Amino acid sequence: MTGLKLITFDLDNTLWPVDEVIRQAERTTSDWIADHHPDAARALTPARIRTVRDRLVREHPDYLNNLTRLRRDAMAEAFMAAGFEDKEARHIAADAFLVFHEARNQVSFFPGALEVLETLADSYTLGALSNGNSDLKRIGIADLFRFHHSAESIGRRKPEPDMFRAALRSAGVEPDQALHVGDHPVEDVDAARRHGFQAVWANLIDLDWPDDLDRPDHHIHHLRELPDLLPLLDN
């Protein structure tokens, strides 16, 4: 190893808790539809959209590589099922998704997250690797990252190797010079290890580690623990 140069971060549930963000974004979207298209409001309950989303994923698993398309198409199908013509349903769904996406990027960081990112950005190349569709510019932290690769931009979601390989190309480093920090045991930690990265499990939401996976060598419960851990990895 020639020293740690690149640190990549997952985003949702690693830098901020995401479940309430999504719930609030869905409520905001429902309110917007009720105000602007009251005749469509009953077709777009969160439960109805989840049912359509689940069906779309079962029928076309590739939807998981593009959550924007999945949510937008699920809304459109829900509207069409409620009697709207295809063109109108897709138009409303496209507008509604813009409302959703704006609200989806109104995040509250885990304690210490911004300070840790700002500190690490002085010494390492930082990258973001996410299966979700958050927008770092809207969130206000794009300047801290050299790159942001997502399932949508790459075309394949973690735990597949594509996003990790793209990160190495973007940073111009080898796998043994890279560390990935994420919350998901399979999509982040185990994937990073299998693709040659070092890995830190950021267990900020108290998940259980799966019994069928080798436990991680390094884990943290608070992002402020990360800088103190890096000397053990940077050698």
Rank of each mutant, 00 (worst) to 15 (best):
W201K: 07
E20I: 11
L126S: 10
K5D: 01
A199L: 12
W209Q: 03
N13T: 02
K137S: 10
P227G: 11
D73N: 12
R138H: 07
A94Y: 07
H219M: 14
L233M: 09
L64D: 10
V181G: 01
A81R: 15
F97Q: 11
L226P: 06
S170R: 14
E187C: 13
D206I: 02
A94I: 11
P210N: 10
T8K: 05
N235H: 13
A89Q: 10
A82G: 05
L204E: 08
T119M: 10
G83I: 12
S170G: 13
H37G: 00
A121P: 01
L6R: 14
D12E: 15
F197D: 03
S130T: 12
A94T: 14
S134E: 09
W32K: 04
P61T: 14
S108G: 05
V186M: 08
D208I: 11
Q24T: 13
V107Y: 04
E85T: 09
L98C: 05
R90I: 11
R194S: 13
A151C: 04
R53K: 15
L204C: 08
D35A: 12
I220C: 02
P185A: 11
W201H: 10
D19P: 00
G127E: 07
D188V: 10
R27L: 12
F145V: 07
D228F: 08
L229Q: 07
N65F: 05
T29S: 04
A128Y: 06
N65E: 03
R138V: 11
M163Y: 05
Q106K: 15
L233K: 09
S150M: 09
A82P: 00
D183W: 11
L6D: 06
H91A: 14
K137W: 02
R224V: 14
